[in-house]
Design a protein around this nucleic acid. Structure first.
Lengths: 252, 252
DNA sequence: GCCCGGGTTCCACTGAATGGGACGGATGCC
DNA sequence: GGCATCCGTCCCATTCAGTGGAACCCGGGC
C-alpha cells in the first residue's frame, strides 16, 4: 500500500465502502478530490470507483458534483428489518404522539449508537437533530439505555469498554453506575433520561421484543425537561411497546 | 471467467452490486448458495463478498440467512434528492389525499421505469403493489407519462426504442401514438391513464419542475376507474405539483 | 452408519486494480 | 492576454489482491 502503517483498507470492497461512507449527509454534492481526501484514497482510485458506482446508479453525478444515488435509496427501502418495525409501529407512534404531544422515536442499536428508524416530531419540536437514519450515543439516551439493558452481555461489555463521552454534567460516564441503572431498567421495563444528552431535553423509552425474546428496537417519548411527566410517560411508552410487539407478531 | 460468453461482470465492483441486486425484496433472508445462483457467481466468490459486506454492516446475517443491513438503510436515507422531494411533498400529498380520498404517489423516473419516493394509500387502497422504492413501467402509468413528457429527447428516444409491454388491452404500445399523447400532456400539464396498467385502475399525474425547469418528479392521484373523476383530479394534481415546487424553492 | 445440501477454506494462477504522474479544461487573478 | 490553480480523467508498468474449482467441515435426515 501507500504507507505500510495503514490500519485499514485491505480490499476493493473496503475501498468502495470508504467512498460511500465519505458522504456526510448534510452536504449537497461532493467532488472527487474532496471525496478522495475524506476517504483517504488517491484521486485516481476514487475516480474509477465513482465511475463504477455511477454506472450502477449507486451514485449520481451532476457535472462535477456527486450525490448518493437512487439505487442506494431503493436498496435501503428493501432492508426488511427496519421496514417491518416501522410499519408495525406507525399507528402506535401516532397514538403516542397525540396522547403526549411530544416527539416519538423508534430506534435500533448499532454498537454504541442508536439509529433512528422512524421519527414523529412533537408540537414542541424539541430535538431537531433526530432524522431518520440519524444516530445518537447509546449511553446518554433513554432509547439507548432501553436497548442496552437487554443486549447480550458480550455486546454490553464491548460498549462499556469504550470511554463514555460526557455531553452534559448529568451524562452517566461511569460504567458501573450505568450497569446498575440498566439493571433497574430491566426491572421496571422503562428507561428514563433527563438532561443527560442535551440540556433541557428528557425522554422515556421502552424496549420492543421479538416473540423469541430478543430486543428488536425501542420506542420513546422525548420532550423538554420541563414537560417531562414521570407519572405518565413511562407507562405510556411501556404500553406502546407492548402494542408494537402485538402488531409485529400479528402481521407475519 | 466461468463462461466466456458472459455479458457483464467485469470488475469486483460489478460483482458486489450483483450480489446486492440479488436481494429480491419480498424474501426474508437468503442463503449463500441461492444468492450465488441469482447473481450468477461462484459460491466461493459470493461467500467472500458477503463476508466483507457483513463486516461493513451493509448486510446482516442471522445464522445462515442474509438480509440487507442497517448501513444500507442509513445510506439510502442520506440520498438527498429523494429526501428533499419527499419532505417538500409531505403535507401537499396529505392534503391531496384528504381532498380526493384516493392513493397519492410521488415518483421519479429511472430509464423506462418510475420509482416511488413516497406513497400515501387512499381509503379504497386500490393499488396494493406500490411500495416506497417500488417500480412501475413508465409508459403505462400517469406518473410515468407525466415524467416522460418532459424528459430530454435523447432519453425519450431511448425509452421508445425498447418494446413497450402491454399490460392490458388499453396499454399504449405504439411509440408514435405515445409521442402524440406526450405532446398533449405537455400542453395540458397533466397526464391521465385509465386501465392501461391494470384493469379498473386509473390515475392522473402532474410533473414537478425545478426552478431551472428540469422535471424532478411527478405527483399523482390513483384509484379505481369507477371513482376516476376527469373533472376534478387533473386540476387537483396540477395544483398540488405547483405547491410542491413552491415548497421546494422555499426551504433551500 | 451414510449421504446430501448447506457454507467456508485452501491455494496456485493471473488479470484486474493500483496510483503516480501526465494531460486537458475550466476558472480566476494579476 | 498570460499565468497559476484546481479540477477530473487517462495512461501504463507493476504487482498484489481477487478468483474459483476442489477439498473440506458440519449438521440433519434417512
Amino acid at each position: 500500500m501507500t504507507d505500510p502503517a495503514a490500519p485499514d483498507a485491505l480490499g476493493v470492497l473496503d475501498r468502495i465502502t470508504a467512498v460511500l461512507e465519505a458522504f456526510d449527509g448534510d452536504d449537497r454534492g461532493v467532488g472527487i478530490s474532496e471525496l478522495a481526501l475524506r476517504a483517504g484514497l488517491p484521486k485516481s482510485t476514487v475516480s474509477r470507483i465513482v465511475a463504477g458506482l455511477v454506472r450502477q446508479r449507486y451514485l449520481e453525478r451532476d457535472g462535477t458534483l456527486i450525490h448518493l444515488g437512487l439505487r442506494l435509496f431503493e436498496l435501503g427501502q428493501l432492508a426488511e428489518m427496519p421496514q417491518e418495525l416501522r410499519f408495525a409501529a406507525l399507528s402506535v407512534m401516532a397514538d403516542l404522539r397525540s396522547a403526549t404531544g411530544e416527539s416519538v422515536h423508534l430506534a435500533i442499536r448499532d454498537g454504541g449508537e442508536v439509529v433512528f428508524i422512524s421519527v414523529m416530531r412533537g408540537r414542541a419540536s424539541a430535538a431537531p437533530g433526530s432524522r431518520i437514519g440519524g444516530r445518537a450515543p447509546v449511553h446518554a439516551t433513554a432509547l439507548g439505555k432501553a436497548l442496552l439493558a437487554h443486549a447480550p452481555a458480550s455486546e454490553l461489555d464491548a460498549v462499556l469498554a469504550e470511554e463514555l463521552a460526557a455531553f452534559t454534567p448529568r451524562t452517566v460516564t461511569d460504567p458501573e453506575r450505568l450497569r446498575r441503572e440498566l439493571a433497574e431498567i430491566r426491572r421496571v421495563g422503562v428507561a428514563v433520561e433527563v438532561d443527560e444528552h442535551a440540556p433541557e431535553v428528557a425522554g422515556a423509552a421502552s424496549p420492543v421484543f421479538s416473540p423469541s425474546g430478543r430486543v428488536l428496537a425501542a420506542i420513546s417519548v422525548c420532550g423538554t425537561s420541563a414537560d417531562f411527566d414521570p407519572e405518565r410517560w413511562p407507562p405510556q411508552v411501556r404500553d406502546a411497546a407492548r402494542r408494537v410487539e402485538a402488531r409485529l407478531s400479528a402481521n407475519r
